[in-house]
Amino acid sequence: MYTHLLIATDGSELADKGVAQGLALASRLGATVTFVNVTEPFPLFAWGGAMAGYAAGDELAAYKEEAGRFAREVLDKCKASADLANVRAKVVHIEDKKPAEAILELSQAQGCDLIVMASHGRRGLGRLLLGSQTAEVLSFTEIPVLVVR
């Protein structure tokens, strides 16, 4: 059925549920897993004024360092969970991309046949204002997506 699952995580409690569900499925199927964590681009528009380039440069370096540290922490936890479940897994951290775009590109590049991700299930104005990476993945993918709430 499914042989290679892409499990997306942002490190949140909700995403942890998606990781657990994805690992349980992979374990039952004998599938391989690729975990992905995506760091969005640094919001340069937030800086203004004559010193913006210098201030943003310092903040950009701090942002990238913290994002890398956070991604390693999240992905190390996922890999440890996979090892405990006897699931073959690798981890990928993608920087400077929108999560949905990165998930779609990686799923194709890795030949994944199922994407597993969590969704808050927001509706109406909340979804409009906050966006939905899950909805975007669902709209543009050509492979099945397991959405966990």
Rank of each mutant, 00 (worst) to 15 (best):
M1G: 13
M1W: 04
H4I: 02
L6P: 11
I7K: 05
T9H: 03
D10K: 01
D10N: 09
A15Q: 02
K17C: 00
A20P: 01
G22L: 04
L23D: 07
A24P: 00
L25Y: 11
A26W: 01
A26T: 06
A26R: 09
A26L: 04
A26K: 06
S27K: 15
L29K: 15
G30D: 07
G30P: 03
A31L: 07
A31W: 00
T32S: 04
V33R: 11
N37S: 15
T39E: 13
F42I: 09
P43Q: 01
L44P: 02
W47K: 04
G48Q: 06
M51C: 07
Y54P: 00
A55M: 14
A55N: 08
A56K: 05
G57Y: 05
D58K: 14
L60H: 14
A62L: 12
Y63S: 13
Y63F: 08
R69V: 09
F70S: 09
S81V: 02
L84M: 09
A85P: 03
N86L: 05
V87F: 04
R88P: 09
K90R: 15
K90F: 06
D96W: 04
K97T: 08
P99A: 15
I103Q: 09
S107K: 11
S107A: 15
Q108T: 14
Q110W: 04
Q110N: 13
L114S: 03
V116P: 06
H120S: 14
R123P: 02
G124P: 11
L125F: 11
G126D: 10
G126F: 06
R127D: 07
L129F: 12
Q133P: 05
T134A: 12
A135C: 04
V137Q: 00
V137I: 07
L138W: 03
V145P: 03
V145Y: 05
V148H: 07
R149V: 00
